[in-house]
Design a protein around this nucleic acid. Structure first.
Lengths: 210, 210
DNA sequence: CTCACGGTTGAGCGATCGCTCAAATTGGCC
DNA sequence: GGCCAATTTGAGCGATCGCTCAACCGTGAG
């Protein structure tokens, strides 16, 4: 039975990444954090890169699972943004500095890691797509906006803001504020009567042909 | 006169970063790309980190300057997004894979680099703020939305999408499409009569108090 | 011509890297 | 107990890292 050891290595890899940053991630540092010999990394995963890739999927699953319930409870786009800000604060509190961002950067020239980060982001995108599909149904954007595309844009943007937050916390705060204001627009659209909603929708269809 | 050598090193650092990725950046690789001895890095910049920081500012200035004219010529939010997509494609064509993203990730535990990337992003944010202020003036969002916050959100989001693009080009394309559709909303708002614009603005103010 | 000095080079130091491997340990089966 | 295979360890190899430093250039002043 090696599952327990594999898990120790995955947790160790994530903890090292989270606490020391991608630059300090190495076979020795991971093994030390996991409390095992470094040879195990190569016995179970073949290489540090593949361990990192596995840890990326593992961590993404955990993180998505941790927030799934709250995502399901969201009732408006504004609440979605408030949730994003809260999640961001929580992760930062826990010392998680842009884990996916660092992995994405590291994956730029490591196919295994790139695939893993794509999968990790994919998990978020699926969740977001479901939520967006549900929330947009209450606005004139229903049937017009592409929830799948928006989910991708949102997930990727969040990664960028996570990275940005580490170098300018106040700037990131202002960015969230501004987006929250914009989300208020959706609230206005929801409040429009059916007639105005049809007008907006008509305008949108014309607008995209330009 | 050492300015020419410094420039050679800055260009070399950027080229190495762009062509090989942050993982392959080292004193030796930079010196080789620049065509000089590696000792010069420490003579002129003190450390590899500080050279990278300087290169980050240098590159950001160049990139902003390269696009400034086109940014100034934009006439609508939709055009702004089209520009972003075009710029993205151009940079990718040139082999520039998420330079700022990689630097942001690398800066997560290097204060010097973090400050430099903050400055680099700051240059973009200034440009975007000016453009957004101008473009929003034609919509009911004028005076309501915070251009400075939106500029930060836009710049940081773009970094995230740049990183995402490398692991899932199609996904990034869909993200851009979706945002472009949403920007059509602004076109609709621009097309509203002054009376409806006032109504929307009123709704916005009420919406944010919730 | 000599000399001083800013600029430049690359060999080399100590540290760290990913990874291998022989040896030690563990745990189930007879 | 003995036995074997799976698991685990950590010393060690070759490569690379950031950085130092003694030695070298070129040039302009005296």
């Amino acid at each position: 039975m090696s599952a327990a050891t594999k898990e120790k290595l995955l947790e160790g890899a994530l903890r090292t990444l989270v606490e020391q940053g991608i630059a300090k991630v190495s076979a020795r540092s991971i093994a030390a954090t996991a409390g095992v010999g470094q040879g195990l990394i190569f016995y179970h995963f073949g290489s540090v890169d593949e361990l990192l890739a596995a840890a990326c999927r593992y961590g993404a699953e955990q993180r998505v699972a941790r927030y799934r319930d709250r995502l399901a409870g969201l009732g408006s786009l504004t609440e979605l943004l408030e949730f994003a800000r809260a999640m961001h604060a929580e992760e930062r509190e826990a010392g998680h500095v842009a884990v996916l961002g660092q992995l994405l950067a590291a994956g730029q020239n490591s196919p295994a890691l790139a695939a893993a980060t794509a999968d990790g982001l994919g998990l978020w995108i699926e969740e977001l797509e479901a939520v967006l599909t549900r929330l947009l149904a209450a606005t004139p954007l229903d049937g017009f906006a592409d929830p799948a595309g928006l989910a991708r844009a949102t997930a990727a943007s969040f990664v960028g803001i996570e990275l940005y937050e580490a170098v300018d916390p106040q700037g990131a705060g202002r960015a969230f504020d501004a987006l929250e204001q914009l989300a208020g627009l959706a609230a206005v659209l929801e409040g429009l009567g059916p007639l105005s909603q049809r007008a907006v929708r008509h305008g949108l269809r014309r607008g995209t042909r330009t």
